[in-house]
Computed example of a mutant assay.
Amino acid sequence: MLSQQTRDIVKSTAPVLAEHGTAITSVFYRNMFAAHPELLNIFNHANQAKGRQQTALANTVYAAAVHIDHLEAILPAVVQIAHKHVSLGVKSEHYPIVGEYLLKAIKEVLGDAATDDIIEAWKEAYGVIAEAFIGVEAGMYKKAQEQEHGWNFFKPFIVARKVKESGNIVSFYLKPGDGSRVPDYEPGQYISVRVAIPGEPYTMIRQYSLSQAAKPDEFRISVKREADNDPNGQVSLYLHDVIKEGDTLEVSPPAGEFVLDPAKTTPVSFVSAGVGITPMMSMFETVAALNPGRPTVFLHAARNEKLGAFRNDIESYARQMSSARLKFVYSDQPDGKINKDLLEEYVDLSGDVYVCGPVPFMETVIRDLKALGLRDEQLHYEFFGPALQL
């Protein structure tokens, strides 16, 4: 438990973190990587270059300061981040390193304003928060290891098939290199893929949704080819252009809490855009197989038909269902957007709604759904951005 003095000091620094948070986390990452370059094997280099990781961490530290009296308020965020940490292979021994350089960065940026009392209070608070993460993640590692066909960290998988789904999406069917089976997973979960790209000094890790319902002997991921000049596209280009059938990729166990409850029978709607369709594929296929009478809506937006992946598969699953409504829209055609009117026409507001796609799309759809009366507990989404580190 934190002392009242510590909580008071941490809360009093919240406005300072709001103002200087990104500067602090930028210094933190710079100094930590200089001292521990091996951590670059875990972190997304592109998110570092774009400043997304720095901003995400700053927001998380600020949230911890604001809620220091009731840290249970940030438990959902802790669990979501912990899933990403486990998928990346973050270990308990990484937390003292992060804590050391975070405190040093606070001191470097704030200077004399960061008194000994402030540094000591944040050291104590960080210790409590870190222990929460370590405990949650230890449970997740234990579950991943002990489940049937489970493992921890990364394991070699063979690319059994490589299938072009659209003008910019390719599916990779992955089978364990040791000939074993794969663990069961929840519809909507993801895996991490770790690659060593020739010429690059560090490994790179990217997370991809599992794009089919659970199968006993394989995973499927469906990867969008990013633009050649996008620093975040280095791994996708490598997978598209270099990796061939028969090659080996390192894969982590399934993780994530953006998942479907297959036991529910109430209406459900899936609303996606672009490559955000990938977790919806696993969810929709699962409903079709296990509960084909469930009232279901599938709305998807793409730039054009050439870039619209999986339409034939979705229509095939829908034919197995007694109450499925589908709508595909393309932005190069009239009325080619998923807007508030379309949501009102299709989505059953008495049920659950899952949303995935580019951030601006998700923000607009979530705002429109709430304006139509959808309650927070009915709304399921996850912004697939940087994996935060605390």
Rank of each mutant, 00 (worst) to 15 (best):
A18E: 13
G21R: 08
I24Y: 02
I24T: 05
S26R: 14
Y29A: 12
M32C: 08
P37V: 06
H45V: 04
A56G: 13
A56R: 02
A63N: 13
A64P: 00
A65I: 06
I68R: 11
D69T: 13
I74A: 10
P76H: 03
V78K: 07
H85M: 12
V90G: 08
S92P: 03
I97G: 02
I97S: 03
E108P: 00
E108T: 11
D112G: 01
D117Q: 14
A121S: 14
A130R: 10
G150R: 02
K155R: 15
F157Q: 03
V159W: 06
R161C: 04
I169E: 12
G177F: 00
D178G: 03
D184Y: 09
Q189M: 10
Y190A: 04
V193C: 01
V195T: 08
P198I: 13
M204C: 08
K215T: 11
P216I: 04
K224F: 00
P231H: 12
N232G: 15
N232W: 00
G233F: 11
D241S: 08
E245V: 01
A255E: 14
E257T: 15
A263T: 14
K264P: 01
S272A: 15
T286V: 12
E305Q: 15
E315Q: 15
Y317M: 10
Q320L: 11
K327I: 06
V329S: 05
P334H: 11
G336M: 04
G357H: 11
F361G: 07
F361T: 05
R367K: 09
K370I: 03
Q378R: 05
L379F: 02
F384A: 08
F384P: 08
